[in-house]
């Protein structure tokens, strides 16, 4: 039995979001799955219903997180359709390939729109509601990449850093109102986003989802996935920035 009854997953159609949706279904949580591509969502929902026929059927809502204006109405509709809400997870995120000498504002803007502004649009709604409700959990997928500014991904890293700080602010706003705000920082995970990339300590998305679920249910405020990244990032954060100059790390 899960402590949660109803959840929204934004960015559910692939990767860790999809694995989390599968896992929540196994825990008998009713989910609303939000993502851009309708076909992918419907395929996922059908798969979940087939794998876990006893679970409440997921509800699907095609939506591009960059359409910020749609969010308040859609959020209310989803809460109504679910019949209640106690968990909101923002998983949507993009990391387009960027060359080290590339400065493409179009790409950069898209990264911020999906990773940061979309998160704010959705999680503001969640915060407003959970504050009145005096309960609920807000979680967002950040990344270990947000802990340092890296040469390879200045915009992606900084978008995750912005998300971290936003989440910290929400936590300080809502913590005393019975609302938990959890920042999830996965290390490299095999998902469509990291396809073709070679990264250290890579894990599979289903394993990541399991650890994320444990983190959401725990009392931690920041969840590294897997846990060893907490120590690794502590070390990396302790390295003076000057030593990074020109290095490809």
């Amino acid at each position: 039995m899960s402590p949660f009854s109803n959840a929204i997953i934004i960015g559910a159609s692939s990767g860790m979001g999809a694995e989390l949706a599968r896992l929540l279904a196994r825990k008998r949580v009713r989910t609303a799955l939000v993502a851009r591509r309708r076909e992918a969502l419907e395929e996922l929902a059908a798969g979940i219903t087939k794998e876990t026929p006893k679970a409440p059927a997921p509800l699907v809502y095609p939506h591009d997180v960059r359409h910020f204006d749609e969010v308040p109405t859609l959020f209310q509709r989803i809460a109504h359709d679910l019949g209640g809400l106690d968990l909101v997870v923002y998983c949507a995120g993009v990391m387009p390939p960027v060359a080290v000498n590339e400065y493409d504002f179009g790409k950069d803007r898209m990264v911020y729109e999906v990773n940061v502004l979309g998160a704010i649009a959705w999680l503001n709604e969640a915060a407003k509601r959970f504050e009145n409700q005096e309960s609920g959990v807000i979680a967002a997928f950040s990344s270990v990449a947000g802990d340092r500014g890296r040469k390879g991904q200045p915009v992606y890293s900084s978008s995750k850093a912005a998300l971290n700080t936003y989440m910290e602010g929400l936590r300080n706003r809502l913590g005393h109102r019975g609302v938990r705000v959890v920042t999830i920082k996965p290390g490299p995970v095999r998902t469509p986003m990291t396809e073709g990339l070679k990264m250290p300590f890579m894990i599979n998305a289903d394993e990541a989802a399991r650890q994320i679920w444990a983190g959401i249910r725990s009392s931690r405020t920041t969840v590294y996935v897997p846990k060893k990244w907490r120590a690794i990032m502590w070390v990396i954060r302790s390295i003076p920035s000057a030593l990074f100059r020109g290095k490809d790390i």
Binding site: P3, N6, R30, P56, L59, D81, G83, S135
Partner: peptide, 15 residues
């Protein structure tokens, strides 16, 4: 045609 009611009614309060 309203969904999710049974689960909603069991929402826990104690935090």
């Amino acid at each position: 045609g309203r969904a999710g009611m049974k689960a909603a009614s069991l929402q826990h309060v104690g935090r």
